[in-house]
Design a protein around this nucleic acid. Structure first.
Lengths: 200, 200
DNA sequence: CAGGGCTGAATGAACGATCGTTCAGCGCCC
DNA sequence: GGGCGCTGAACGATCGTTCATTCAGCCCTG
């Protein structure tokens, strides 16, 4: 008689994860327009019908995956840094985390870009994504108060901070360039000059 | 060069343009995964079969449109600036052209992003796009030689120069922000500090 | 403890809709 | 009248989605 809060969901979390992972891989490799449910199910090692036990349809699957990926990215990229460090080292700590996440999760980064450009995300998904991003804004505002960052509109900071690395990781993804440590160092130098007080 | 579709004498350039424009509008509005040839033809005011007289199929249509849009963007954004002006004004002339193109051609900017992320572009298309970009690289190298810009790897300059405005125009496209002159001014300030000698 | 009824997760063939593409015929212009 | 631009119904493939069916594990009864 152990009264469980959830009503006996015998569904396997592993299977759900497998479907999400298969979707991520397939969409990143073949494109959103060319990733049928049949192929997703095959890649996940389940039957087509099973995917519909875990998700309300293809659009809902994509939206769920998008939120999961964005959440994971911001969870690894946003944690606070040691405020006692010099300004440039504080910025490096968070910027390099954000950067390496993109370079080491090509599929996820590409998936995010496809979702955001294709109009497949629902209004609700976008609202939730902006809630998630709020956490990062707070830490930004704190840094400004401590005199680390320039006083910029938050969206301008966001653009200067994330824009360059989005371009570089996209170029790497399309095999146009290879990102070396030197490239990262030079790019970070530019970001520092643009957002740090005094210009780094 | 082998022409993809044999252009006959009586084909109308207007009709070709109408098909391209309809594709741009529809893909930007509904997404690459949800822009069928039937809808494209309807929006262009032609029959489905007509589109196949002008293009070798949907993928070829998308690839042609992508090259046309990129060419048009770089043609308006890249023309040389007066080398006699101060460094910051030279940069402003080209950066603001590039920026305003993105803000005033939302559909085109979104279409480019969808194409580049979705893997629909052929190897040949990407090769041609990089040729088109070469023109901009030359003008960049010239500016470095004249001592205007910092000596950065060209891909780093490209990322610092274009990244922030891509992020901002995307946010505007998704109605997350409104881009004011003040936002542009602040962003341009950051770009100056990151790529100009002396930090602007 | 044995075993039969029951539950619900999992399946995949089948379905209607719609996709990209074709082609036989139509009508306009030279 | 000949030929070319154009049409749109038709086609096979494939899409997202459904649902009748299966069957492994749990509960209850004797």
């Amino acid at each position: 008689m152990t009264p469980t809060a959830a009503p006996a969901a015998r569904r396997s979390a592993d299977k759900r994860e497998a479907i999400l992972a298969a979707t991520l891989r397939l969409v990143a490799r073949s494109g959103l327009h060319n990733a049928p449910m049949s192929a997703i199910a095959r890649e996940a090692g389940v039957a087509v019908g099973t995917a519909y036990l875990y998700f309300d349809g293809k659009d809902a699957l994509i939206n769920s995956l998008y939120l999961a990926v964005v959440r994971e990215r911001d969870a690894t990229a946003l944690p606070d840094v040691d405020a006692a460090l010099p300004a440039e080292e504080q910025l490096w700590a968070s910027w390099s985390r954000y950067t390496h996440w993109h370079l080491e999760h090509r599929d996820a980064a590409n998936f995010i870009q496809q979702c955001e450009a294709s109009g497949i995300l629902t209004e609700e998904t976008r609202a939730r994504q902006m809630e998630i991003r709020e956490a990062g804004v707070e830490s930004f505002v704190d840094s400004v108060r401590r005199g680390v960052l320039r006083e910029l509109p938050v969206e301008v900071f966001y653009a200067l901070y994330t824009g360059p690395i989005l371009v570089l990781s996209h170029m790497q993804d399309k095999r146009e360039i290879e990102i070396t440590d030197e490239v990262l160092r030079q790019t970070f130098g530019g970001v520092c000059r643009s957002v740090l007080r005094g210009g780094g």
